[in-house]
Design a protein around this nucleic acid. Structure first.
Lengths: 225, 225
DNA sequence: CCGTTTCGAAACCATCGGTTCCGGTTTCTA
DNA sequence: TAGAAACCGGAACCGATGGTTTCGAAACGG
């Protein structure tokens, strides 16, 4: 309950996310080779095996079917070890998920904010089409029962992504490419809202959904004036 | 797992929903007084007490904190009785939730489809501002682990509401009040998307969110031409 | 009075998240 | 070389929970 919810670290901007095989370079560096404490050093194997197991299981079984025992077993590690390094099942699953994210540091900002915006949205939606979206949805759903998890997901994924889009929107407004009286945060909700509604009600996220959403948003619903 | 997921009944169009005290008239009528089977008659008290307990607990404790035991205890009823009439905790919670919905059969269709649309959206968002929205969100989230629950929620709440809006949209299009080339289902996602994104990420749903969403959708993001 | 169905209480079972204990191992330091 | 310190795996363990079963008692109709 009141337990801390530590994710080992991660400090990078995530935009397009999708579970991918190659691990990211997000390892801790606790002051490089500081007075190494005595005793047997932690077995990095076990650590990585657990994180890999988390990623694998997230892809293979529905979140509700993953148990602490199955995690440990899959990693070939004892449950005790798991709980020595992570405070909860959610914590390790989330860290595994984060570790597997494809970190695509958003379209490299061309001169045209609208181009960036379009590409950004396309990528975000694209990453959520298919099984990866279902995983993300499960985690978000689980956040309802585990506030720390929700916070981590918001802080590390949702908020950064929203801020990026806000930034692009403001650029576009400044360039006169969008209305000057936009309620920017609301536009962000408009952009990603359909993604959530699809994911949370179990409807499919088509590949081109993001583009269609954005196009419709731009034009508006009123008849051409 | 493979258990049936029966909700006693309910066959009404729900538009604006929010837990309210007065129970709806949704009782079964098994062919009025058909050959009454022998044996002790079921205690309607216990039934209603359980449904009430479900509604009360949904309002008082987070979904994840409601247990089958607490339900039974609150209703002053044995757990065995609960499971005699409902196949799972989720089933009774959902039925209790449905029973408590304020059934407001959508704005009585004026001549102006746009007026109806606006009112419709306003009501839907209004019902989700505040604690009722959190309850709905919890149930949707829980649907991720319980497919039958998701289906029930979609069939009884989400889909009908979407169909209503689709209908209104088509009317507005026919009346020339909206673009004729609209992707209607996508517009529906646009309209309710922000509601989901707010609910699922734990952000507040402001009272006027629906109106703002709709207004922005109508105008579009492009500078006035 | 009997058969049938319900009810409540309590015991019961399996699962799961999480902890604890123990014996054994790997490292550092003295 | 001897601790001390930290790690590991295995297994027992705990408490909570969803769900079931058993049993005796009530409520009905015939």
């Amino acid at each position: 309950m009141g337990k801390p919810f530590l994710i080992r670290n991660l400090r990078f901007r995530i935009i397009c996310h999708s579970l991918n095989p190659e691990p990211t370079q997000a390892a801790i560096t606790v002051t490089p080779e500081q007075t190494r404490s005595p005793g047997r050093p932690r077995c990095e194997n076990a650590h990585q095996a657990l994180l890999n197991a988390a990623q694998d299981l997230l892809r293979e079984v529905p979140l509700s079917g993953i148990t602490s025992a199955s995690l440990a077993k899959r990693a070939g590690v004892s449950k005790a070890t798991l709980y020595r390094w992570w405070p909860s099942k959610e914590a390790i699953l989330l860290e595994g998920y984060f570790e597997g994210l494809k970190v695509t540091c958003g379209a490299p900002e061309t001169e045209d904010a609208m181009v960036d915006l379009r590409e950004h949205i396309r990528q975000a939606y694209h990453a959520m089409a298919g099984p990866d979206g279902v995983i993300f949805a499960s985690l978000i759903a689980d956040g309802h029962a585990h506030p720390e998890m929700r916070k981590a997901l918001n802080d590390e994924l949702n908020s950064p992504r929203c801020e990026d889009v806000e930034h692009l929107l403001k650029r576009a407004v400044a360039a006169g490419q969008l209305r000057s009286d936009l309620d920017v945060p609301l536009v962000v909700d408009q952009i990603f809202g359909p993604l959530f509604s699809r994911l949370m009600t179990g409807q499919p996220v088509e590949e081109d959904l993001g583009e269609r959403v954005f196009e419709m948003l731009l034009q508006g619903l009123l008849p051409t004036r």
